[in-house]
Amino acid sequence: MDEYLVQVLSNIGMISFLALSAYILLITGEISFGQQAFFAIGAYASGIATAMWGWGFWPGLVWGAAAAGAAAFLLAWPTLRMRGLFFAIGTLAFAEMVRLIFEIFRYQVEIDGELVGPNGSEGFRGIRYIFEQDISAFHYMLLIYAVLAGVLALLFVIERTRLGAIWRMLGEDELLAETEGVNRTYYKVLATVVAGAVAGIGGALYAHMNTYLEPKIFNVMLGVHSLAYGLIGGLGTAFGPLIGVGIDIGLLESARIFSGYRMIVFGGLVALLLIFRPRGLLDEAAVHALVAWWRNTFSSPAKRSGGSGRPPERPGA
């Protein structure tokens, strides 16, 4: 496979975690400008684990996700009372704080006569686990997609069961959800933690592919992009954000015809979509229509009430 293509696909895969993270909060009705903070925390935590503590890749990945989830848990409480715009600004302030803390965060140890570890705004060099284990870029790309498939599968299970239905209920009408018996605090905090952990996984994968972390790449632009992906691709299914990532990174950033004009096209596209399809290409109505079409075409009437002929992307229920 072409090296450039592998890199583009790897990027799409990693950013997808961030887009899914923003998507989880979007379906619960919150707009976060700060998911990049959890991406950064996952990246730093897993990088520290493998490069400085000598951990393996998988423990490092889990540790990165756990650290991001824990940070999200801490953020969830003070932001619980913030609504709408206030939540957006609050998460923005939090993420910028995290980035600025990484700008001054120094923690280095000497390994083989060389200082390794986060060095403030100089960044964090030498996360070389993948390189040392001789894993090729192509194999690492497959690994990214395997993890992504796992997270997607988990999200599809969530969406088909209790948790997903309640998240979407909260996202559409909080008051109704509460009068029907939903404990808002519990489910909002849970959504924030899951979203944080998903972003953390993406960050961990990113750290090991790049081998070098710089605080300034975890800026608000990254966060708002990941938010926009869900709004472009659609909030009806977890495939939506992936479509958004594909359109932006796959089409606009990588296709060289748009070079220099990518943001003009991307910005215009998002603005137009928000006018004509405010919940994205694959919004709930589109997913519903697709499901109905699928069922009419591929499953016999007898199966209908049994639900066995349903495709996996069915939301809620």
């Binding site: 209790r162 239905a165 979407r168 029907e180 018996g181 919940r279 109505a285 939301p315 809620g316 229920a317």
Partner: peptide
């Protein structure tokens, strides 16, 4: 944004 049945199942989960 949900179907009629999903409205009920959401209420079932919530309750």
């Amino acid at each position: 944004r949900m179907t009629v049945l999903e409205n009920l199942s959401a209420a079932l989960f919530a309750g």
